[in-house]
Design a protein around this nucleic acid. Sequence first.
DNA 1: ATGAAAGCGCTAACAA
DNA 2: TTGTTAGCGCTTTCAT
Lengths: 349, 349
Amino acid sequence: MRKLTRKATIYDIARLSGASPSTVSAALGESWRTRRISEATVEAIRRIAAAEGYSTNMQARGLRKARSGLVGMVIPLHDNRFFSSMSQSFEAAARDRGLVPVIASSMREPAEELRIVETLISYAVDYLFIAGATDPDAVTAMCRAANLRHIFVDLPGKGAPSVVSDNAKGAADLTRRLLADRPVTGATPRDRIYLIGGDATDYASAQRIAAFRAVLTEAGLPPLDEQIIACGYAPRSALREIAALCDRLGGLPAGVFVNSVTVLEGVLNHLSRLPLDDLRACVIGCYDYDPFAAYLQFPVHMVRQDAHGLIQEAYRMIDENVLDLVLKMVEPELIAPRTFYDSPFSDRG
Amino acid sequence: MRKLTRKATIYDIARLSGASPSTVSAALGESWRTRRISEATVEAIRRIAAAEGYSTNMQARGLRKARSGLVGMVIPLHDNRFFSSMSQSFEAAARDRGLVPVIASSMREPAEELRIVETLISYAVDYLFIAGATDPDAVTAMCRAANLRHIFVDLPGKGAPSVVSDNAKGAADLTRRLLADRPVTGATPRDRIYLIGGDATDYASAQRIAAFRAVLTEAGLPPLDEQIIACGYAPRSALREIAALCDRLGGLPAGVFVNSVTVLEGVLNHLSRLPLDDLRACVIGCYDYDPFAAYLQFPVHMVRQDAHGLIQEAYRMIDENVLDLVLKMVEPELIAPRTFYDSPFSDRG
DNA sequence: ATGAAAGCGCTAACAA
DNA sequence: TTGTTAGCGCTTTCAT
């Protein structure tokens, strides 16, 4: 017969054990050593608590201690290999520290991002990670007002420590690789390399676009503005833009630098409609790694961003109480077509 | 100059506005209508609160109201297309209801799963979704003790409403499709279809395996036990098992039913080392959809589970206060090789 | 070695 | 229409 009563509190355990609530609190927590509660008492109290299915009410504890035990993270979206890897690492690292992770997705909407930050502040998260921030300054302002330690990941902010991929290096490496694979003359619009996807106003894309331009210029192929198609990250708009581009050019260009895995999804949607020989004449690079995308019918050069490393580094800053406005870079890695990268969680599924 | 003071409380707003804390509380919340606070007062209070950057302390509110405003969900892992889609839908649906989602991954470890449930209970989540439960009965026991409404998704439980994919139908469809694509005789070990991956003791895999067996049997090809290789969901073990299988058979079998997208990752890792012609002689099906996996060098038949539909249905049960031990089925969809499925979030990235 | 009591910030009776 | 008060469950001085 199921008990319909509310959850047990320390008062219940106190009554049952004959000890006082404060003793119970100490016995059930960490402070019993310093309070010099006898081991016998602690044992007895814990036994009873276990029997009653007691568990600490974290709302009450948090209220009293002014620490919730929660760590928040804002990501653009869950349904994305890069960000979901970050979530996985974020969660593991949180647990290692006895914290409970709360991950929310902003859909890259600045307003939504701020609403989420406000919500997380309401729940008194102890730290906040913001990945792919769309409005870092506003986030910093809110966190400052709430006295909340925060840290930017992937896209940096000016008001807090930041950990980002070395986008310039990753993009330069990828661009060079595309050129090496498929030398172009730049003589005709089709004999050029195009960059598609991303938001030219965000830091990561800006860095990548700059590197892309620089490498092309170095190679004596200074890019025209129309070679940069920063149409956002959504598959749907990427599909539209790559189709339009092929229309304009009368076919695929010599090469495409795809600015994220979600963009690649849209691009692939279009490419899949074209004859295979056309695809093979075009060299494709993608700024992000996906094991399946590594084995498509045409080779794809990929840049694997170190999601795990980014998160580790960010937690290190929290652990070491770094408050300086550092901008830490984590190296991405160029992955050759048809190569497997063994993720840190590949023994899980 | 940054204020270093703690966050504003209703007492601060009360002092500043000349109203009482309870009036402030009402004005800032929903109850001011029924309490018949004048609009003017409400306005004034809200203005001051906004100016002070006030936001409700949800720990305190939750403690008082015995409702946290949190909804929990346990998933096996974040870094997985199926589950991360679920997260995305779960979060959107939570927000529609004014709830804050807390998603935690169990890595498919029963002990971890229970620890997470206990943690979520500690934080007083108002509802709990458990996706891919490894120990549903234990979860139900804990939730009962804590008086927590819960619901199983993907893998059902006996003690609470459950929403699951129609695994039998999905697996039967996929198996039939494999047979249609690549008729086998069953005469030699290589001329058979093998199922790889999953956990034979979990409900979903059990259903799929049963359907796989049934379809083969119907077709006059009753499967041997060695045709079922339920080696778990991890890419790494799938890699090992498919390699071992090919070793035993002296090459790829006629067909492979891959039991999840993570398993496909491991399988692909092996297949990628084989000559393309060998792969093309083997028909591959995967129970899960991934847009990139849909465009590999060899065709892959896929079953798309309706993550969004599962979550919608689960929330519907919460909304309608369904308490019966129903087992609701959601139909998966067979997706032909090289087909794009347009996800509900493809306008995002 | 343990207990009593105050208070974290909020809401809901109950008063006025 | 608004104010006063008690108390949600916990931790922490301060007593003893």
